[in-house]
């Protein structure tokens, strides 16, 4: 089949084919360390390329920390890990002013948030004020210490984790704050074959280490390119239909969900789905978005943005079920 693309798309496709080679390099290095979890690795790259943040949900020991530290190593970027605890203070994250008796002045001590990649481990273990300090920084991409504002490093990616099992003594993130995460990725156990390789890697005398293959400015360049990825009006309409179906399922023939959804996806959901779809198209070496891209990311973008009612909980209906049904109900353009 001969693709007769418009010159602008053709040119973009060529550019993307060239630039997206970095994706292969990144994935190759990450795959040296992370066995399986392709879904998680891909979503991390989507968030990285679309300037978003990721909320990861999975039981302990699924290589969440390893994934983001590996990504940081492959990009020659600064990595910080924040272990959220109930006694953590906002200053422990963003930094504080320290008085020097010798110099008789205050000096700024920047916190661990001044890094390119942040792993906020067990974010729901810290109280609300700490969570909001982090989430504000995520949104504004700058922090204020003692009246001085500081821009955060670029790229700036926060990967927060939540343990779905233990809920005792946690401070669940409010809906408004969860909405700040572009993607909520649910990760599962590796397959048998994958776990066999994980055991071998860990028992070997040397654990594989990733090479640093990229500089942060390559990511900035790729981000600019992602913005250029063409999204047809039909795709925009498809995204809007999906998000609107989460708000008014009845309009899309999903009457059964009308009483089960307390609130649907916000406009931020539509924006994030669009940006993430462009990044996904970039990862797949395309200069244009197709419905497959939107569908691939729908669950990750929407699962934390749909509020369920008690009726839904009583009937064991999850946001996953609702999204799947919506995808089966909304016509592809």
């Amino acid at each position: 089949m001969t693709e007769i693309l418009q010159p602008d798309i053709k040119e973009l496709n060529e550019k993307i084919s060239k630039e997206s080679a970095i994706i292969d390099m990144l994935l190759l290095e990450m795959n040296k360390v992370i066995v399986g979890q392709k879904h998680m690795s891909e979503r991390l790259l989507v968030a990285l390329l679309s300037n978003g943040h990721v909320l990861l949900e999975g039981v302990p020991g699924l290589a969440k920390t390893l994934a983001i530290s590996t990504l940081a190593k492959t990009i020659e970027a600064k990595f910080s890990r924040l272990q959220f605890t109930p006694d953590l203070l906002p200053a422990d994250i963003i930094g504080t002013q320290i008085y020097s008796p010798k110099k008789e002045n205050f000096s700024i001590k920047k916190g661990p948030i001044f890094a390119n990649f942040i792993l906020a481990d067990e974010i729901n273990r810290a109280p609300a004020k700490v969570q909001s300090a982090l989430l504000e920084a995520m949104q504004e991409r700058q922090v204020t210490i003692g009246g001085d504002s500081f821009d955060l490093d670029k790229p700036f990616l926060v990967m927060a984790t939540q343990n779905p099992v233990e809920q005792e003594g946690t401070y669940p993130l409010p809906e408004a704050q969860v909405d700040r995460f572009m993607l909520k990725v649910v990760i599962d156990y590796p397959k048998k074959e994958e776990e066999k390789i994980i055991i071998r890697n860990n028992l070997a005398t040397t654990f594989p280490t990733p090479n640093s293959v990229l500089k942060t400015n390559a990511i900035i360049r790729a981000r600019d390119l992602v913005k250029e990825v063409y999204m047809d009006e039909k795709i925009e309409q498809y995204i809007i239909d999906i998000v609107f179906a989460t708000r008014n399922p009845k309009e899309y023939g999903l009457d059964k969900f009308q009483e089960m959804i307390s609130f649907g996806g916000s406009p931020r959901a539509s924006i994030n789905l669009a940006i993430a779809s462009k990044a996904y198209a970039f990862i797949k070496r395309r200069g244009y978005v197709i419905p497959e891209d939107v569908r691939a990311l729908c669950h990750d973008v929407l699962r934390h943005r749909i509020g369920l009612t008690y009726e839904a909980e009583a009937e064991n209906i999850t946001s996953e079920d609702i999204i799947t049904e919506i995808l089966n109900a909304v016509e592809i353009p």
Binding site: I4, L5, Q6, D232, K234, R286, Y288, I290
Partner: peptide, 16 residues
């Protein structure tokens, strides 16, 4: 081919 025409500004030739 239809996808490309719809989503990627592709213009298939007459024979296509």
């Amino acid at each position: 081919r239809a996808d490309l025409a719809k989503f990627a500004k592709s213009k298939p030739v007459d024979s296509e």
